[in-house]
């Protein structure tokens, strides 16, 4: 099976089950193709009967019968070149601020894992797909890695601050990586809560749901008709949004995991420039998805309350 289940124990990566060493397990997985590290977000905990990511999101055969990420990202077909899927778990339950602290430790564990992957096969690309607070794990790892260690990071409605993301993308490993910032106004409520519950590293900082401007980043707002039209023209049709509020649309919406599959397996075709070429100049503003549905005249802040 091309899937390895690994969990962060503080800042150390360990196999989810079994007593084999991580290096030995990784060395047994030959074949070509990229290594894709999949990282869940808040509220999962490996080994927890009800919340284990290895039984749901990151499984080849999720308990709930859903497709799960690995199969939709092209794993399990039996092809030699399908690469290596790594389900990366970390304890993301409890108070959000505590979980976020654990994400930083897990980021160090991820860095150890990626370093091991590169040591075993320097030529194998390593990519990361992360949802919500799992993006913090990937960003932290960049601070501890060598240039070229990670190829692409797909951030699915990432719970991270702009300044921290830009700082991570300005590290030696960050400058050689590419960051696809998948956002949606469906996630506004969760971005808002993130900004309320997790102290910002800098005053005035915002969540990357607002967009992220960096030389090696692109923001795809997947509830924007212009963006969806652009992706469709490129050959990656994605379903239209049917919810006002949703934290999971960045992987649950039809067509998106197929798009991610293409972004990871054919980066030379799906360049950042190609993605940028048909996008609107600015992402839609926060709450713009909710407010048209509730045409209520909100009071303006005091100084603007004029005639």
């Amino acid at each position: 099976m091309p899937l390895i289940r690994i969990n962060a124990h503080d800042d150390v990566p360990r196999l989810h089950r079994g007593h084999a060493t991580l290096d030995r397990e990784l060395a047994l997985r030959g074949g070509s193709g990229p290594a894709v590290v999949m990282i869940h977000g808040y509220s999962y905990r490996p080994g927890d009967l009800r919340h284990c990511p290895h039984r749901s999101l990151l499984s080849m055969t999720p308990d709930d019968g859903d497709a799960g990420w690995p199969r939709q990202l092209g794993f399990g077909g039996g092809h030699d070149n399908e690469g290596l899927a790594i389900a990366f778990g970390w304890d993301a339950r409890g108070k959000p601020r505590v979980a976020r602290l654990r994400a930083l430790s897990a980021g160090r564990a991820l860095a150890h894992l990626v370093t091991a992957l590169k040591r075993l096969d320097p030529g194998r690309p390593v990519h990361v797909v992360a949802h919500s607070m799992g993006v913090e794990v990937a960003l932290e790892a960049l601070h501890h890695l060598a240039p070229g260690a990670i190829g692409r990071i797909l951030s699915l409605t990432g719970a991270a601050y702009v300044s921290r993301s830009r700082a991570a993308l300005d590290t030696p490993a960050g400058r050689t990586a590419e960051f696809v910032n998948v956002t949606s106004r469906e996630n506004d409520l969760f971005d808002f809560l993130f900004e309320r519950l997790i102290p910002a590293p800098r005053r005035g900082d915002r969540a990357i749901g607002h967009g992220l401007v960096a030389a090696n980043a692109v923001t795809l707002q997947i509830d924007c008709s212009e963006t969806l039209g652009h992706l469709d023209r490129l050959g990656a049709p994605v379903g239209t949004p049917d919810r006002l509020i949703c934290h999971w649309s960045a992987y649950a919406r039809p067509g998106l995991l197929q798009l991610y599959n293409a972004l990871l397996r054919r980066p030379e075709r799906w360049t950042l420039d190609l993605l940028r070429a048909g996008l609107p100049p600015e992402p839609a503003s926060r709450w713009s998805r909710l407010l048209p549905a509730f045409p209520v005249a909100l009071p303006l802040p005091g100084p603007q309350k004029a005639a």
Partner: peptide, 14 residues
């Protein structure tokens, strides 16, 4: 180092 992973300065954003 772990504290500074969270915030720009030791005691927060300032």
């Amino acid at each position: 180092d772990r504290q500074l992973a969270e915030s720009a300065y030791v005691a927060g954003a300032e």
